[in-house]
Measured scan of single mutants.
Amino acid sequence: YFQGQLNAMAHQIQEMFPQVPYHLVLQDLQLTRSVEITTDNILEGRI
């Protein structure tokens, strides 16, 4: 994955969860590489 793709995914998640800091979303995406998994992590309070 290149950074631009991760940034696009992070923006997509931020639209759904504007209360979660962008850098935390991006940090999780770098591990998961998945909008779905990061979204689940937010919903389950891991982020």
Rank of each mutant, 00 (worst) to 15 (best):
Q19K: 11
V25L: 10
I42T: 01
A10N: 00
T38C: 08
Y22A: 06
E36R: 12
G4V: 11
P21F: 06
I47F: 08
A8M: 13
H11W: 12
E44L: 13
F17Q: 01
Q27F: 11
N41E: 01
I13R: 00
G45E: 04
T38P: 00
V20R: 01
L24F: 07
E44A: 15
Q27V: 08
Y1N: 13
V20A: 05
Q30F: 14
L43F: 06
I13S: 01
M9R: 05
Q30M: 15
T32K: 00
Q27G: 07
F17Y: 08
I13G: 00
A10K: 02
Q3P: 12
H23M: 09
L26G: 00
I13L: 10
I42D: 00
N7S: 13
E44N: 15
T38R: 00
I37K: 13
F2T: 15
P21E: 08
P21A: 08
T32W: 06
S34T: 02
E36I: 09
T32D: 01
I42F: 03
S34C: 05
Y1S: 13
L26R: 04
L43W: 06
L29G: 02
S34M: 03
H11R: 14
T32N: 03
R46A: 04
L26V: 09
A10D: 00
N41L: 02
Q5M: 14
Q12G: 06
A8W: 14
Y22L: 10
L6S: 02
N7H: 15
H11Y: 12
L43H: 05
I47A: 02
Y1I: 14
Q14C: 11
E36T: 09
H11A: 13
R33Q: 13
R46H: 06
L43Q: 08
E15A: 13
L31P: 00
G45W: 06
I13K: 00
L6V: 07
L29W: 03
E36S: 12
L24A: 08
Q19I: 05
F2I: 12
A8Y: 12
T39I: 15
R33D: 05
M16E: 05
Q3Y: 06
V25C: 06
F17T: 00
P18C: 06
G45Q: 05
Y1V: 11
Q19E: 11
Y22T: 05
E15K: 15
I42Q: 01
E44G: 11
L26D: 02
I42R: 01
M9G: 03
F17K: 02
Y1M: 12
L31I: 13
